[in-house]
Design a protein around this nucleic acid. Sequence first.
DNA 1: GTCCATGCAAACCTTTTGCACTATA
DNA 2: TATAGTGCAAAAGGTTTGCATGGAC
Lengths: 168, 168
Amino acid sequence: MNTQNPPQVSPFVRLFGRYLRDQGLPVTQQREAVADVVFSSDDHPSVDDIEQRLREVGERIGKATIYRTLDLLVRSKLVEEHDFDEGFKRYEHRLSRQPEHEHLICQECGTVTEFRSHEVQRLQEEIARSRGFRPNRYKLEIYGLCAPCQEAGAELPREGLTCPIETV
Amino acid sequence: MNTQNPPQVSPFVRLFGRYLRDQGLPVTQQREAVADVVFSSDDHPSVDDIEQRLREVGERIGKATIYRTLDLLVRSKLVEEHDFDEGFKRYEHRLSRQPEHEHLICQECGTVTEFRSHEVQRLQEEIARSRGFRPNRYKLEIYGLCAPCQEAGAELPREGLTCPIETV
DNA sequence: GTCCATGCAAACCTTTTGCACTATA
DNA sequence: TATAGTGCAAAAGGTTTGCATGGAC
């Protein structure tokens, strides 16, 4: 189909290729294409987003292959899987300037902002250790309203019981 | 079916009844039964767990009703929904001694331990505020190995690239 | 030439919804 | 009695899998 190969394989895609070879797995054109899309995305694309972006570059790759490649990318630790309570997963490569970071998620517009806090990192380690737990990874997500949505007058739904329960 | 009513409705279930009446919704036997199971569970039951526990008490309630009741319980803010990356949701009532707490999740045995940290709470508020974000709720989850699993010799899967990438 | 990946469609699993029937207020 | 809930089964939506074909090594 696509006789015109990409000008050159990006360093990140090459890293993924190395992982595949380490595992004795073939480096296919589809795997490189999916990896390239993920590594060129600076947001948190869903599988549909990835399929769409592949199509924009003239690549028609089946969803099954995308899922299977994402699985490999996650295993390689080059990509992280996220679940922002939307009913589907999002993916994000770990090769940005902020390899470890947390997320602020706007409940109005869905925008995801990243932040980094060494203090959170330290706290998490301290908490785990004090309980004899060996931490592997952690995630901190803050849900609320981003600044633009607050200015636009957005309000968070106020349901729940009228009298908040404080059972402490 | 169940002519033998529970000895008396628990205070928590009664609270839920109040919420329902506030909303102009009927307080049904099924809703009370589901609420009762959730409020008597000190772990994080899934919908299947809840169905199972209802059956153990002689209640046969359809899954649809369980889902619909859980939705009401979550709306009432008496119950929280969790997603520990298992492919389904878990539920936990907020009426324990620790209304606000975070989770340590063992990747070996799946055990969920709770912890509380005022520092995390403070940090989260500080981070949000410094970015003009209005926080509504947050979640911190630490994944790793619990003490018993470590003692049993469990190891976390070491996949990924042999040479960890530190792109900072 | 062998092995594995791909693509399509069907299967899967959790969750949601439509509808006839029943219970609540 | 009007209104809303229940249960069943079907649908929905994201993700996984089986299988025949085709490409990588």
